[in-house]
């Protein structure tokens, strides 16, 4: 299978200027400016196969957008190699961008003042899409994203969710084999999010479209991506299946108890003294949470002990969520 994206030792540095304090400092700034070199993306390497859906995650400022901008030819790398769809994005920019679609959730790709369908029409010409291609492909896109009623409105009059759906449709006018999505679900309500996820799955199925997606909403990743690449301070700290991330880092289970009687943490610690359990109390809701190793026997024993001694109103067993796993990795590092 061919690789849609190959990245080798990719690096991007930004100069961050700092100004000195005081009048004297200001004068010295005139002559020589102090700057620090900030490596936004620091020597990363990875490959993405055609048809893969990859989640690209990391904290704020980790370098996700910077990577995407290099992969799409917007920024020139400081060093390293990028091959996307068999081309170097910065060399044949105009030819290259015909083979990709890009959506930046933070910023509109459409023309602000003109109606959505006019934008589409212009883009159709820009990408040299024939009428047949457009009709067969876009009528489906428009229907699935449910944007028919928005087509005659100017972009500036759309709500965020409406705009995002149009942006997505616009990025797909030329039916590119590779789609970059930088926070496509930022600020959207659950229904729109679901609609967008469904849609992405569908085009991935139908056209084998490769999708690289950044998001802070891990449920997006869980719904769409089998593979995640995790970035921290410009370096890749994890690249692999979402599942094995969970297995490796899912630290046991949480069992939530609610009781019919007054219970203290001391009671619980006494009752379960023989097993390795940590208890926590949520004061407001009177929920007690037991943190235990992910071991079925241990957990059933624990529940048996508690139920034998106390009157229980509700029990809820939870796996550590991906959210928490990632939180933990950010907090403590991968090692």
């Amino acid at each position: 299978m061919t690789d849609a994206i190959t990245v080798r030792n990719l690096k991007k540095e930004f100069k961050a200027y700092s100004s000195r304090s005081g009048l004297k400092g200001a004068f010295r700034d005139l002559l020589t400016r102090n700057y620090k070199i900030v490596p936004a993306v620091n020597n990363i390497s990875f490959q993405v196969k055609q048809g893969e859906m990859v989640g690209y995650i990391g904290e704020n400022g980790a370098g996700k957008s910077t990577t995407i901008k290099m992969l799409t030819g917007i920024l020139t790398p400081t060093s390293g190699e990028v091959i996307v769809n068999g081309m170097n994005p910065h060399k044949d920019r105009e030819k290259f961008v015909r083979t990709i679609g890009v959506v930046f959730g933070q910023r509109s790709q459409l023309w602000w003042d003109i109606a959505v369908q006019e934008s589409f029409r212009l883009l159709k010409k820009v990408y040299k899409v024939t009428d047949e291609q457009y009709d067969s492909h876009m009528s489906h896109v428009i229907k699935t994203l449910d944007i028919e009623p928005l087509l005659d409105k100017p972009v500036r009059k759309l709500s965020l969710g409406q705009r995002m759906r149009c942006e997505l449709a616009a990025a797909l006018i030329h039916n590119p084999p590779l789609l970059f999505l930088d926070e496509p679900t930022i600020g959207l309500d659950v229904l729109v999010k679901l609609k967008i996820r469904e849609f992405l799955k569908e085009i991935n199925d139908k056209y084998n479209t490769t999708i690289l997606l950044t998001t802070h909403d891990l449920s997006d990743i869980e719904a769409l991506c089998e593979r995640v690449v995790m970035l921290d301070e410009g370096k890749i700290i994890y690249d692999g299946a979402l599942k094995s991330l969970k297995e490796k880092w899912g630290e046991g289970k949480e069992i939530e108890f609610q009781f019919l009687e007054d219970v203290t943490l001391n009671d619980l610690n006494r009752i379960t003294a023989s097993s390795e359990v940590k208890w926590e109390k949520d004061e407001k809701k009177a929920i007690f949470t037991a943190f235990a190793e992910d071991n079925d026997e241990l957990i059933s024993l624990l529940i048996a002990k508690v139920v034998a001694d106390l009157k229980v109103k509700d029990i809820d067993i939870k796996e550590t969520s991906t959210e928490e796993i990632i939180r933990n990795i950010y907090d403590r590092g991968i090692s």
């Binding site: 799409t72 917007i74 105009e94 961008v97 790709q109």
Partner: peptide, 13 residues
């Protein structure tokens, strides 16, 4: 404002 980002993802000079 970074509008050049958008420009640079389109296949025209």
């Amino acid at each position: 404002k970074g509008e050049l980002d958008r420009i640079l993802t389109r296949p025209i000079h």
